[in-house]
Design a protein around this nucleic acid. Sequence first.
DNA 1: GTTCTAGAAC
DNA 2: GTTCTAGAAC
Length: 743
Amino acid sequence: MEETDPDHEGSEEKGTNPVVVILVGAPGSGKSTFCNDVIGAGRRPWVRVCQDTIASGKAGTKSQCLKSATDALKDGKSVFIDRCNLDKEQRSEFVKLGGERVDMHAVVLDLPAKLCISRSVKRTGHEGKLQGGKAAAVVNRMLQKKELPKLNEGFLRITFCQDENDVKDAVKTYGALGPSDRLATGIFGQKKQDSKVQLGIMKFLKKVETPDKLCDVNNKISDGIAAPKLESQMNDPCSMDIEKENKVTEDVGKKELLEESSRGDGSIHVLTLAFPSISTADFQFNHEKASDIIIDSVSDFLSKVDNGRLVLVDLSHKSHILSLVRAKAAKKNIDQKRFLTHVGDITQLCSKGGLQCDVIANAANWRLKPGGGGVNAAIYKAAGEALETATKERADTLNPGSSVAIPLPSTSPLYQKEKVTHVIHVLGPNMNPQRPNCLENDYLEGCKVLRNAYSSLFENFASIIQSQRNIKESNGNSRYGCSELPNNVAEESNNNKFSYGDQKSKRGGFDESERKKKAKPEHKEKQKDEKIDPKRTWGAWAEALHQIAMHPEKHKDAVIEVSDDLVILNDLYPKAKKHILVLSRFPGLDSLADVRREHLPQLKEMHAVGLKWIEKSQNDDASLIFRLGYHSVPSMRQLHLHVISQDFESAHLKNKKHWNSFTTYFFCDSADVVEEIDMYGSARLNDDEKLMSMELRCHRCRSAHPNIPRLKAHISNCKASFPSTLLQNGRLVFASSKAINPS
DNA sequence: GTTCTAGAAC
DNA sequence: GTTCTAGAAC
């Protein structure tokens, strides 16, 4: 995730600079409490400059605050600017206090508006004199103008807090800051792209996209079902009114469902599919667009299939996508008995939610593997090994926009406890550049894929309903347990007996071969394609490695070691303290794209040679951490494995491309490559050139930085632990304990 | 004025 | 891959 571990991002560089922390937050956001908590920790001398109390306990002027801050800094004290500072202009004078000798930070208390309001309303005798009923109006008005701080205003570090836990972490971080400690620079604690916070960051990163217009969303919901009130204008995407209103809709639906489920002996039980919103969480698909697609797909299903019920499930009452879908479903008069939304855990719908769902959809990954996070991890965990085994029997991989239904063995806890008979794995489009197959904001394609995903999911569900019906008709009631349904219901969606024909024609332009090209899990296709595509041509400068591989004896100065198959050499322009290349000597192996199963032994050898060299290197310096991998599209001809230490301390690391080629999915970890070649016969490349122009993020704590020099300043000090994905599958190589303690 | 990026040439 | 440099950003 984006957030840093407060335990790791703490003091990391010694210096004597005092720090000015500008608090940014509405009344009631907890600015004064924050200051007091940090000051109370007593690790360094702080002065809190509060405009509400600066004139002998009364409200004062901005210039009084500036003077007070300047005086404190002269005394070597650090300063909190405790005023709202909600827009850039309000902050600008204070930012000027920063400079060579003074570090300028911002801490943004971006808590839900309703929380700030309720605190403001409750407080009596607060220094700001903002009490009672006026508070709500004032807070709302102030939040309208909210303009979150950016690094380019002059901040070295910005910490965003969006809930109480974030605040606690920030208090801990600043509270632990000793007189000569300095904090890591950059942006910390930024959340998903659906908040106003991100808009500021997007601008700072010069990527002016338009994230969900939350205010518009609120207005639209209001138009549809609830009269707009003051609160509905708050920045909080789930304002109180809307939440309340939707809960009513939800409860009505649930009540009716429960009534129907409990009718008699189950013979009337309506088969129900529970599904999460596809692609809107980690895959960052636009909620507005996704909700439209859900509504369309649901309507389509309900009109074509006369049986079966659909439930959209999300974990939180605050779910933005659930709010949107509810509102739109109400507006479109969708049958509440056949489609409802539910807040709860999709793996405990029967036991905890009182909702028996025979079929649940899983937001799967393309490998159909457990783990990751969110719904996929939860479902695999809840279903136990039985689901893994059953899935493996049916399919190896999944293309975006498709689904596969898996009958759940009766041994699965999900079957036993929750009465789930089938899990349908479905894969939607990905808009998250940090995940494979990112569509890079191509919503034309994205919407198409998401529609395909839902129609495939619902087709699979329709097949299950039909099979169930067939069984009942031919065998009398429930001779089969649901998990013993014939295999045909588990095939990839298309051979169902329902009138989805027109659906298929809607898919025009996205046929199977195209899907495979996009999704790439079917690697066999690729070899055919390559016969059509002429091989890439290389510039003269790009032939250097090839020359070395073919004639290592002519380049003795560059080469460390030569064997019949491999050459090891120092990278001529190392991008870290240690950076070597393990070069294949096979003719015809220009890059990873050429590698096939027959090259697997050599790939394993390259990996082993790399590991051996790492071990040697770590004997000299046990603090070095290495990563081994290939560039998806190398600049130089002849397959070469990069073995690079993760300090990235090098004058040769100069630009965005250098950084991103080693720290994004463009870099294919050797361990993964070996696995992929073994399983699919070719490696999965992430060759989207947009990966090279991605924002600069620390490879450890994932904080964002405006340019290369600032990024390098940050990484030279960042001690945060690595993201969990890098800690898996041997992607990072740490010194063995033997090397650290050579006893 | 200085710093930084990005595109062209090699 | 690097170097060079115009011009954008600060």
